[in-house]
Design a protein around this nucleic acid. Structure first.
Length: 1126
RNA sequence: GGGCCUGUAGCUCAGGUGGUUAGAGCGCUACACUGAUAAUGUAGAGGUCCGUGGUUCGAGUCCACGCAGGCCCA
């Protein structure tokens, strides 16, 4: 029976299927975890994917990356528990449900109950779980799919509530405002997702105003600020400048009122406001009404000089007046001089930057109080000015006799055209235009013009959106900013720049985490409040909720609990029906917000184990994570929320090592999308190429943190080049091992030191490879690891070791040398199966099983083995260097033989090569591998020419790194001098160890080590040179060499005949040859034994003529031959 | 608009700390091998190192400014 299975053809997808089956039947994954019970843990966190869409090829990338390090660490003896997980909440789910039901958010609670809507979400969210599980299995991603965490689960939510309460108790949760895109027409806030819908941003022409803000304490001096939203000017409460920018004060006239005045603006913006043609006009010569307005710079200053200047409120509405530091000049880091005046007008309620800047610098904003005493902006939620501004505008219209397409009342000033007024009406004037006319008349506008820019619109109503303050709950992440920055520095980021750059910068500019989402399907915020907001409670567990409900029922606020005690669901609408009782006996209602889904995923280290309600020990053993991996787009998503929660609540990092992988693009570098049809179907790819080549390609082609241009040709290439070569190597081994009934037995193996040098060499290379792979993997660099394995397999093992050792496998009977060859190749293949098992888990296990089928005590799976580290004692650096020489020398000789002037094929033996050697070490290294070189390039002898010989022609080069440091600018001349050197100078510096070179009148002493001496020429010979190594080939063909060449040619032809005849390897033959010219006859006589051995001929008979002969083309002549089976 | 990444042969990618002639695989061309054979080996051709400035005796490499593509955020 055959000990090693042989394969004519390999079905890679089939290997995937059968090995997967084997793993399932034998619970290999489970065993890989359970057999490490009690061992040190290596912790991996699974970033939960969302199963409401089908998985794509990029998920193969992400999941492979996650898998490989867990497998590697398992081999190394760690216990690696990997709990799968599902992200189930959030907007994408809601949108999909709405699309399927044909409803919009407005319909929820009307056409469909919240209960029904959420039920639908719950059904939808796991719709493609089967596809995901299928893909996960098929690509060999080992993760626990049977007991995953699910973010909608009540236990999961309970942990979230626990964490929120912890934050609440630390006073890190508060209610505030945030400026968000808001659609007055639809009466709703918009998510950034909705804003990014195609068509949301449109080019529109708006009225822009450069307003004049009159400085206090300086006559007729104004600061200019530009805005494309004039309706925000009544809410102005500060002006921002750039501290480092240059500003000027200009003496000029107002273009509308012609009044003389000074204006302040950025120096580099003058070109936009002043006509150079007016520069020559004297200020005194100006007549009101002239088109060209003269100007004169009277002062220059830096932005920082303007800080703190006070100005008059632009719209002097008494109710909107504010105390200092309002209406002053402050600093804004985002101020540029690309447009406008280099001064930015700030309205706290209507711009996110404005809001942030004013909050940071403690400047109040323009608000009024509503009937409840809450501060509200002067534009209401319909997008219309409150009467406080409306009244002012109506009065001003009368004062300035402004007429419009309609009569404006105090309640008619919509800031955008939300009423659908006819804009083509000649008299049409919107609020912005009315404002600009008033400002022009009052010497408060310096320039008014139409300005085209891109502005976002509501995708539902097609109306422009406003940035508007909306109530929100926040986590005060800024309180822990420094600690987050500090702990981030302890995290090993791959690539590093993502940690320091993208993530580091993000932390440096941290703002508070806006937790609120106004939605239906998500984790409810567990805060209940009284109507007036004076009393509130944050619930931190189901127990607490139950007991509070009991209290409320006792207080008569509810008749019964809206929560089903048997099957607890903490979602809306049930929690919304819960009314709790405050300490003072007042009813408390839940704040209707849901929380950001990123909190769901960021809390998974705790919630996946239902900590602290259960599994405390498991949690503690598996926190923080040693390793996580996710797409780089998660930097401010999952990576941040993991980090933030860990730092704020546990003063710890959440993960120690992280790979942020790039995108998977199509082969042309374009984003894959189902719509464009360039998306690659992972299942189809798996079916065609199997999982191993796909994984290997993705890891080896480019660093995972770079974007991958995914090409099926690339997968095919990996399969052919790497897996194909490895498979050939295995087949070669199996073929002969079976013939010789070789079975590996470690206890009886020939000690490595007693094996052939070639064996020692490949074993040494193998140890080096193991070290490289270990080092790369410890550094989370899978690309380096896979490339190293590939190089070893293809270039070293197959193309060198197997090729050179081939004859040892099929010559003669079993002996120590043959056994050593088998053992060496076997050990290499076994090592490879383990080394590659993390990356190509199916093929590796399959090869392992094939190799160990007849070996007692072998493991059930390569994935259950223990990592074999490199044996340093087996590394022989000198031998590796020697072999490197052999490879290079062989290559040089091949290239010489191939030279058109020489043109002698390898089959023709040649007498000798000459190698100039300038030192003993190189000579010894080459001597070591002399035999190998001789047989590889078919020559009889290697000869060395050393220093003592006269033939050697030396050349010299400057040693640039050394000389550069020593000489600096003088280098140029010295290098030129060295390049002119001949025999004498080289001899001198070799003799004396130094030489003096005259350089521009000076003398420079050069030392021997500052030049590189080599030999690149042997007069009268054909030589080839590569990296300091030179080889000359003796191309003289003696009679004997010619005869041997002919004999080898004959062997070659006979072997072809044998193959044509369909003979088996071990079949014996008889050869008859028709006599030829003398040289040929002599060749067959002198090399008859050789020919017979090589062709397994029992007899070689020379005859005058041969009947039924085959005529062979021997290049230079023809030969009649007859081969018969003996 | 800001932050970050990428740009080297037709394609995919290597190129510590600057050093004379920039490498590999695939593809292409030619040759060889024919006992690993639907395999394999060898050689050759192929380059504006995205551009422009700068630092330096010397820049693919360091700096600045751009260009192109990408991601994230405004």
């Amino acid at each position: 029976m055959k000990k090693y299975q042989e394969f004519k053809q390999v079905d890679y997808p089939g290997i995937g299927d059968s090995v997967l089956q084997y793993w399932k039947e034998n619970k290999i994954f489970e065993k890989s975890v359970s057999q490490r019970d009690g061992a040190e843990t290596f912790t991996f966190f699974e970033g939960p994917p969302s199963a409401n869409g089908t998985p794509g090829i990029h998920h193969v990338m992400a999941r492979t990356l996650k898998d490989i390090f867990c497998r590697y660490k398992t081999l190394q003896g760690f216990q690696v528990k990997r709990k799968g997980g599902w992200d189930t909440h959030g907007l994408p789910v809601e949108l999909q449900v709405e699309k399927e039901l044909g409803i919009t958010k407005e319909d929820i609670g009307k056409k469909i109950t919240v209960e029904e809507y959420n039920r639908k979400c719950r059904e939808t969210v796991m719709r493609f779980k089967n596809e995901w599980d299928d893909l996960t299995e098929k690509i060999g991603y080992w993760v626990d799919l049977d007991d995953p965490y699910i973010t909608f689960d009540a236990k999961y939510i309970e942990t979230l509530w626990y964490l929120l309460k912890k934050l609440y108790e630390k006073d890190l949760i508060y209610k505030g405002y945030t400026i968000q895109p808001y659609s007055p027409a639809a009466g709703t806030g918009l998510s950034s997702h909705e804003l990014n819908q195609p068509g949301s941003y449109r080019d529109v022409k708006d009225t822009s105003i450069t307003a004049q803000f009159k400085l206090k304490g300086e006559a007729n001096t104004y600061i200019l600020a530009w805005t494309t939203t004039p309706w925000t000017l009544p809410s102005n409460s500060a002006l921002a400048i750039g501290e480092k920018l240059d500003y000027v004060k200009v003496n000029t006239f107002n273009p509308y009122t012609f009044e003389p005045q000074h204006v302040i603006l950025a120096k580099s913006r003058m070109g936009a406001y002043f006509n150079p043609k007016a520069k020559e006009i004297a200020i005194a010569d100006y007549n009101p009404g002239d088109k060209l307005i003269p100007y004169e710079v009277v002062a220059e200053m830096k932005g920082v000089d303007l800080l703190g200047l006070q100005y008059e409120q632009l719209f002097p509405i008494a109710e909107l007046a504010l105390p200092s530091p309002a209406f002053t000049v402050i600093s804004g880091d985002y101020v540029t001089t690309e447009d406008g005046t280099g001064v930015v007008h700030l309205a706290k309620a209507f711009g996110a930057d404005d809001f942030r800047t004013l909050v940071q610098q403690n400047v109040p904003g323009v608000f009024v109080q509503d009937e409840k005493g809450n501060e509200i902006p002067v534009v209401d939620k319909q997008g219309k000015f409150l009467p406080v501004v409306g009244t002012y505008l109506v009065n001003k219209m009368k004062e300035h006799a402004i007429t419009a397409h309609k009569e404006f009342g105090v309640d008619d000033f919509y800031v955008k055209n939300y009423t659908g007024d006819d804009e083509s009406d000649k008299e049409y004037k919107n609020t912005d235009i009315i404002i600009s006319i008033i400002l022009k008349n009052e010497n408060k506008a310096f320039k008014v013009e139409k300005y085209e820019h891109s502005y976002p619109h509501c995708w539902r109503t097609d109306k422009p959106i406003l940035y508007y303050p909306l109530e929100s709950w926040f986590i005060k992440t800024t309180a822990y900013k420094d600690r987050m920055v500090e702990l981030n520095k302890t995290i090993n980021w791959k690539p590093e720049a993502t940690g320091t750059g993208r993530f580091g910068n993000w932390l440096e500019n941290l703002v508070d985490w806006n937790l609120s989402r106004s939605r239906f399907w998500g984790t409810p915020l567990p805060i209940w409040r009284t109507k007036d907001g004076s009393e509130e409670i944050c619930i931190g567990s189901i127990e607490e909720l139950k007991s509070e409900i009991k209290k409320a029922i006792a207080a008569g606020l509810m008749e019964s609990s809206p929560i089903n005690e048997e099957d607890i669901d903490l979602h809306r609408p049930y929690v919304d029906d819960v009314i709790l009782v405050s300490a003072s006996g007042a009813p408390m209602y839940r704040e209707p917000d849901l929380i950001d889904v990123w909190f769901d995923s960021g809390a998974m280290p705790y919630a996946q184990w239902h900590f602290p309600f259960e599994n405390e020990a498991v949690f503690k053993a598996n926190y923080p994570a040693d390793y996580i991996a996710e797409g780089v787009d998660q930097t401010r998503g999952w990576f941040f929320t993991l980090h933030a929660i860990a730092v704020m609540l546990f003063d710890s990092v959440s993960f120690k090592n992280v790979i942020a992988n790039g995108l998977v693009l199509d082969k042309n570098g374009n984003k894959m999308s189902k719509r464009l049809g360039n998306a690659v179907d992972p299942f189809k790819t798996l079916k065609e190429y199997g999982p191993d080549a796909l994984r290997w390609y993705m890891l080896s082609n480019a660093n995972p943190w770079d974007n991958l241009k995914f090409s099926l040709d690339g997968v095919a290439e990996v399969q052919r080049r790497f897996f194909g070569t490895l498979q050939n190597t295995y087949n070669f081994f199996a073929l002969y091992a079976n013939l010789d009934a070789f079975v590996y037995d470690k206890s009886k193996a020939v000690p490595v030191a007693q094996r052939a040098e070639l064996d020692q060499w490949i074993i040494s290379k193998l140890q080096t490879l193991i070290s490289e792979v270990e080092q790369a993997m410890d550094n989370y660099d899978a690309t380096k690891a896979t490339r190293a394995i590939m190089n070893f397999t293809v270039d070293q093992l197959s193309n060198w070791y197997v090729r050179l050792a081939r004859k040892r496998f099929w010559r003669g009977d079993m002996n120590a040398d043959k056994q050593a060859a088998y053992e060496t190749l076997y050990e290499c293949l076994m090592s490879l199966s383990q080394l590659m098992s993390s990356f190509a888990p199916f093929y590796a296990d399959w090869m392992y099983k094939n190799l160990t089928a007849s070996v007692d005590g072998a493991s059930e799976s390569v994935h259950l083995t223990n990592w074999t580290s490199a044996d340093q004692a087996l590394i022989n650096v000198d031998l590796e260097a020697s072999m490197d020489m052999a490879q290079r020398i062989s290559s040089l000789v091949h290239s010489l033989r191939k030279n058109p002037k020489i043109g002698i094929k390898v089959r023709q033996p040649l007498q000798r090569i000459l190698i100039p050697v300038l030192n003993e070490k190189v000579k010894t290294q080459i001597e070591h591998v002399e035999e190998l070189i001789k047989s590889e390039v078919n020559i009889k002898a290697v000869e060395y020419i050393d220093d003592a010989s006269d033939v050697l022609v030396k050349s010299v080069k400057p040693n640039l790194p050394l000389l550069g440091k020593k000489l600096g600018p003088k280098m140029r001349h010295v290098v030129a001098a060295i390049n002119t050197w001949g025999k004498e100078q080289i001899a001198e510096i070799e003799r004396n160890g130094e030489i003096t070179v005259p350089v521009e009148g000076e003398s420079v002493v050069l030392l021997l080590e500052e030049v590189l001496i080599s030999s690149q020429d042997i007069p009268g010979w054909s030589v080839a040179t590569d990296q300091g190594l030179t080889v000359a080939l003796d191309v003289t063909l003696t009679q004997e060499l010619k005869q041997e060449g002919i004999a080898r040619d004959l062997v070659n032809r006979i072997q072809n005949l044998r193959k044509d005849m369909g003979l088996e390897v071990q079949d014996k033959i008889q050869i008859e040859i028709a006599e030829q010219e003398d040289l040929v006859n002599a060749a067959f006589q002198n090399f008859g034994d050789y020919i017979k051995t090589e062709t397994q001929a029992l007899a070689l008979i020379m005859k005058a003529t041969v009947a039924d002969a085959t005529v062979l083309d021997m290049d230079d002549f023809e030969l009649s031959v007859k081969v018969t089976k003996a």
